[in-house]
Design a protein around this nucleic acid. Structure first.
Lengths: 342, 342
DNA sequence: GTGAAAGCGCTAACAT
DNA sequence: ATGTTAGCGCTTTCAC
């Protein structure tokens, strides 16, 4: 019959119940190698803990050990499928290491505030920044204060040594190569703002592969990278002379918007215009037509970011990581061989 | 010239620098009403804190005050637009109250583990459960252990007293009324699993409004509520005899799937079949055709859940809240007047 | 194999 | 208006 406690049970409660000292309870419950209690005592302690429903208080533990076992993840918002996927990868891998996740977005407030609060108050052991929107300067300033624990996700910034990115240039190349193989010779790339380094890499990869393939490239640069930007961007692509016969959209939402824009313009996809998205998403199979896309390992991106962050937390050196998995073409219905040359 | 500290500055550092006691620093920095320091001292303390870059240690503060200033949010995953929107509402409102957000999903692991960990270890002051997938029993068990701090979001469970839901039945009614006004007399509702209480309410509202409007209802119940379920579900709807002339999809992704399914079946929307989605999303404007949808106040749902949780944390009584904002029809291109009776 | 004691950084009750 | 004191619950030497 355990005494009924009104308050949260503490180590002391368990210790009293098992007739041992708190320190021993602590060691046993954490499987501390230095806590080699006799099998019998161990059992008694475990039973007592079980009985009162003991749960270590995270604050006390964190205060004492200076480890929160929590990682922070800073996102631009919850909406984009790419960020959802990254977040999923982060959460899963963090969980495998026994780490929890504190989430912050900066859709509304001042990004630098959020960042500062999480790291500076010691709420998290490390911070993953997966937002393209925070200014480089703010980032450098932050990292100047706590260099050991900030990892950039899907982004590189001069002066920040720890980052994980994907093979963006190769993704563009895969898209272009696919279209070239289908016979397209005038391809338009619709990209987001040139200030975002993913976009820079994708555009460079696009241009390089066009040259490689003997394809005439056109580039449209938009101020955003959402559906509307794709919708508007494809209008600009159609105005080009000579008109391209295929489009590479810099993001998945842009491709969705491009599809809508082409439909509104009365251009049939893929008969009159082929469309490829950079990044894949479950939605692709439910669009009309089903969207050909270049799949990128976004979950793994999140997972690798966690690994790097934990390495830093444990005193490792900052590194620039490129997730090695190659981008992979998922062929669906929005691309087809070039038919007429006009 | 401030001494350069290697370690994180603490209250004691600031106190020493300002030539006062730590307790005074604590009070001044928190604007504690009982800490009426002289303007001059206050300034000195603020300056010192600024100089060394003092940030209160969250663990120590949490340990002492038994408040973490953090809320937990349990989601089924990051993908669904509805959950993204709820999460956004939660984060924003929590932030307004100075609360941070710990995120947990249970896409992969055992949901009850995640829940337990967050609440039981005192990492969060309250927990918002926005997952339809966790079994009622597990939920009741959890709430039995920590009744004061668990709020169900978009869900009601017998035995759990604190919850916030939307006017689901009214959303269905809005959709049906719209279709009835367009002349439709045979409407099919495609819903997710009957075990989810949102789905129950939407189906009931659907049937009630059909009766009200003198419309012949058909109901298709799917095991999921994603795009695929909508795709497959619309196939089942088409097989009904007499064939319905309009479809109400129980979720937004289901409507997306339904659109795709109808296209594959060669049924023109809205000429041959009207489609309405329950819940709205930015994607609606970029589908072909643009999707008519019933907008529901999901961000506010999240915000209200935060309010309720904080009320509980502060000793308030659990309540069942229904967000009062009425569902609102957003008319786009996927619905049209009934043309032929066959 | 187990216990005693100190202290992480902060807040709050009680002085003065 | 400011300082003293105690202690939140845990981990960690160091002793025995």
């Amino acid at each position: 019959m355990g005494e009924q406690l009104r308050r949260r049970p503490t180590l002391a409660d368990v210790a009293r119940m098992a007739g041992v000292d708190t320190s021993l309870v602590s060691r046993v419950l954490r499987n501390d190698p230095r806590g080699f209690a006799s099998a019998e005592t161990r059992e008694r302690i475990r039973a007592a803990a079980q009985e009162v429903g003991y749960r270590a208080n995270a604050a006390a533990r964190g205060l004492r050990s200076a480890r929160t076992m929590t990682l922070g993840l800073l996102l631009p918002g919850f909406s984009s499928p790419v960020y959802a996927s990254i977040a999923h990868g982060v959460e899963e891998r963090a969980g495998q290491h026994g780490y929890g996740l504190v989430l912050g977005t900066h859709a509304a407030g001042d990004p630098h505030e959020t960042i500062t609060d999480m790291l500076m108050h010691g709420r998290v052991d490390g911070l993953l920044v997966a937002s393209g929107r925070i200014e480089d300067r703010a980032l450098r300033r932050l990292v100047g204060q706590v260099p050991q624990s900030v990892v950039l996700v899907n982004r590189q910034v001069r002066g920040v040594a720890a980052s994980v990115v994907l093979r963006d240039a190769d993704a563009s190349a895969v898209a272009v190569a696919h279209l070239a193989e289908l016979g397209h010779r005038r391809i338009c790339g619709i990209f987001g703002p040139g200030g975002l380094d993913t976009m820079v890499r994708r555009r460079l990869g696009f241009l390089a592969e066009c040259r490689e393939q003997g394809v005439e490239p056109a580039v449209v640069e938009m101020a955003e990278r959402d559906q509307r930007a794709g919708f508007d961007g494809v209008g600009r692509a159609l105005a080009r002379d000579p008109r391209p016969t295929a489009v590479v959209a810099g993001t998945f939402p842009m491709a969705v918007g491009a599809l809508a824009g082409l439909h509104d313009a009365g251009i049939a996809v893929p008969r009159q215009m082929s469309v490829v998205a950079l990044h894949n998403d479950g939605l692709a199979d439910y669009l009309v037509p089903r969207l050909t896309a270049v799949a990128m390992p976004t979950e793994r991106l999140g997972a690798e970011a966690v690994e790097l962050a934990l390495a830093l937390v444990n005193g490792g050196e900052p590194r620039r990581v490129v997730v090695p998995d190659p981008p992979r073409l998922v062929r669906r219905e929005s691309t087809a061989p070039l038919i007429s040359n006009d």
